[in-house]
Amino acid sequence: MNEKKIHKNKWQTTIFLLIIIFITYLSTAITDFNFIDSIATIPAAIGWMFTNLMVTQESMAKMPAIMEKLGETIFMSIAATTLAAVVSLFLALLGSKTTKVNNIFSMLARFIASFSRNIPVVAWSLILLISFGQNSVTGFLALFVATLGFLTRAFIESIDEANQSSVEALTATGATYFHIVSKAVIPQSLPQMLSWILFMIETNIRSATLVGILTGTGIGYMFDLYYKSMNYNVVALITFTIVIAVIVIELISNKIRKVIL
């Protein structure tokens, strides 16, 4: 690198940093964000957490109810993810370059995926809430739609990554489309796809809490209830059970991933 190039790079970096600083400043202005205030809040918030977010004997009495709601939330996430995965598999087969049937279906599949993925899960929940009402099905459908879009994209990537040459070889033996998909494409991409499904289950348990707050179901609803009535001991207990559930599921998925990938 010569003197001039270093100079030019320095310039670029400086301009880039200035732009970032400017955008950040703009953001603080538009959101009314007070930097000093928020820094001051952190110790106060953490102090508050340590004094108020304590699990007490009384709150433990709520444990059975919490477990039931937590179970509902976990099941909701798993069901939404697995069923979305089944549909995504079809969409991904239609959408992938390797296995597409024709260009129209491929475009359509990619369009559906992009549409369902880029509308946030919150929007889906609120839209579905209007007619489906406060029950698990609303949350299930919201998670299902958002997961569908994400998994379709991930599956298309996994299929495209799988080695093309065995597809060519099977075509040359006179195999049909479904033979090729089931014996050359899926065996190669299935472990990768499962890994994505596990990832999505973890994510969805966290999203399910959010969806629950909005749609009045599951552990999210429970949290909201005790949060609004300022019963912070139960709030703490709920938070801890969610953390434990998420971490346990993450550990299990990591174990499975280690074996299959």
């Binding site: 964000f33 928020s38 106060a44 999210g220 969610i242 971490i247």
Partner: peptide, 24 residues
């Protein structure tokens, strides 16, 4: 492992609802 919305709500108790709690 803690969902973002719970962090925001927890910070909101200390900082009040608003952009500070959300950003934190």
């Amino acid at each position: 492992a803690v969902p973002t919305v719970l962090w925001v709500l927890i910070f909101a108790i200390a900082a009040g609802l608003g952009s500070e709690a959300a950003v934190l």
